[in-house]
Design a protein around this nucleic acid. Structure first.
Length: 488
DNA sequence: TGAAATGTTGGGGCG
DNA sequence: ACGCCCCAACATTTC
């Protein structure tokens, strides 16, 4: 009996065993499957993983390697470097005759993977890619004229009409687990930072497939019934927190879609529940929409989608940017958000909009400065979502908030953190201020500040800009950037 | 997935 | 009783 050639299964943003179509297909060949993870820091250009992302990735790979062991599969093989070269080397060393993976959609990854597929095929090796990261392939959804969608609502309608979201792949993964090759120790990938700044993240998160499943279950049973009512309050743990897991594919959108739909169905005639559930599914479609836009406009992370912003005079001011990054703007809700991000690697969605609006419309700094900071500090940093979010808030995106829609950080704070719980959690130096002053401490009477142990400019900054003034400046800048032929 | 400015209305105080 | 003014409260427009 001739010894069967192995199949290489290449893990990328699909760090899971459940609902992993390419992995299931690899096992279905009946040949030994060698699971591989390549830390490719060569091809990503300026979009190499950020620090928080790499921390998460390290934890997630630890967890993945353990589940692979528990499933009796071939031990996970770690490699580092140019994936093109690494795949070629692995094929040569193992004599593999298939390479399977699930598709990635970053423009640089598409370019790289296309090359890899071609070179494998020309070398007589079968290469197959599968759909696992998105519910809909970005090229599948088109409007009536065959063009990509530019507005979310019709896009989401088209998705729902198309339907046909496949159920999660079921069945047990089986393959000969006898080690064929070994890779690098995980530590050699260099994902963990030298300075130990990640305690807050470790306390907040459980990266990995098991953590994802647990969190999803908790969300569906505990939060979904009030989702739309609670999701906007940053002090409430009312969201799913699936974003980092989705980014690394520790859970698939298909599993989430399926489980949430099942919960809606089980609620029967409970229309309120269905409404909350559909509100959540709609958010999943925003993720699809982001990747749809990125696919059809590969410059999305670097270039304003709306050409009108091509000549916009963003300020360059390191000092202001630094105040924003460190949560020292003097606006409590903004500072709370930026500190939540720094400490936990994540920020509540409502607050992301507020800090984004503040950066772009109050400080007049370039949305790409915000995008870069988020890229480095978010554990859910995701090229499509991040670019879409920043272009949206800056007003230069496809289906974006108009530039003149400017959030008032004080009003938003009073509305969505009325009791100041969120502010007190992340800006403890203000914790003794009464609710009525905590949103704008500079308006508090001297006695209240004294009683709360606050000296503005010393224990907490003065506001770095005046909101009303900043608003006028932003509107003026927008007006000035108008092309002449647009002025009438 | 706004906020501010501006316009309108209607009740109540008051001469 | 009446008109006038004030100003919430709400609606509309503008950025």
């Amino acid at each position: 009996m001739t010894k069967s050639k192995p199949v290489i299964f290449w893990f990328r943003n699909d760090l899971r065993l459940a609902d992993n179509p390419a992995l299931a297909a690899a096992c279905d060949t009946g040949q030994p499957v060698i699971p591989v993870y390549i830390h490719d820091d060569v091809n990503a250009g300026i979009w190499k993983n950020g620090g928080a992302t790499n921390w998460w990735l390290h934890q997630s790979l630890t967890s993945l390697a353990a589940s692979i062991g528990a499933a009796g599969l071939h031990p996970l093989v770690f490699c580092k470097g140019d994936a093109k070269a690494e795949i070629a080397r692995l094929v040569k060393e193992t004599g593999a005759d298939h390479v399977f993976w699930n598709r990635c959609y970053e423009p640089w990854a598409i370019a790289r993977d296309t090359q890899i597929k071609e070179s494998l095929k020309s070398g007589g090796v079968d290469a197959q890619s599968f759909s696992a990261f998105l519910l809909f392939e970005p090229w599948e959804i088109q409007n009536k004229t065959g063009q990509p969608y530019k507005v979310f609502t019709p896009y989401s309608r088209a998705c729902l009409e198309r339907g046909g979201i496949r159920p999660p792949v079921s069945g047990k993964l089986k393959s000969d687990g006898k080690p064929i090759i070994t890779g690098l120790p995980l530590e050699k990938l260099g994902l963990m930072p030298d300075i130990k700044w990640y305690d807050g993240m470790a306390e907040t998160w459980t990266p990995g497939e098991t953590g994802a499943k647990k969190r999803l279950k908790k969300f569906i049973t505990g939060c979904l019934d009030e989702y739309k009512a609670q999701r906007d309050f940053p002090a409430v743990d009312g969201g799913s927190r699936m974003s980092p897991y989705l980014h690394f594919g520790e859970i698939s959108p298909h599993i989430i879609w399926h489980d949430v739909s099942k919960a809606i169905a089980e609620a029967g005639h409970d229309n309120a529940f269905a409404n909350h559930g559909q509100g959540y599914l709609r958010q999943l479609l925003w993720r699809e929409f982001s990747w749809h836009l990125l696919y059809h406009f590969p410059e999305f992370p670097e270039k304003a989608w709306n050409p009108r912003f091509a000549g916009f005079k963003w300020k360059k001011n390191k000092k202001l940017l630094n105040h924003w990054q460190k949560g020292q703007t003097g606006y409590p809700i903004i500072d709370a958000g930026m500190r939540e991000l720094w400490q936990t690697g994540w920020m509540h969605n409502r607050v992301r909009m507020l800090v984004g609006s503040f950066l772009v419309k109050n400080l007049l700094l370039d949305w790409r400065d915000g995008e870069d900071w988020f890229w480095d500090t978010l554990v859910d940093a995701d090229l499509g979502n991040n670019a879409q979010g920043w272009q949206w808030i800056a007003g230069c995106g496809a289906d974006a908030a108009p530039y003149f829609r400017i959030f008032n950080p004080i009003l938003q704070s009073r509305k969505f953190d009325a009791e100041g719980d969120y502010i007190r959690r992340y800006v403890p130096e203000l914790s003794k201020l009464p609710d009525e002053f905590i949103h704008a401490p500079w308006e508090a009477p001297a006695m209240e500040l004294h009683r709360a142990g606050i000296t503005l400019g010393k224990t907490y900054p003065h506001p770095i800009v005046d909101h009303a003034e900043a608003r006028d400046l932003a509107l003026k800048a927008y007006h000035d950037s108008k092309p002449d032929d647009d002025a009438a």
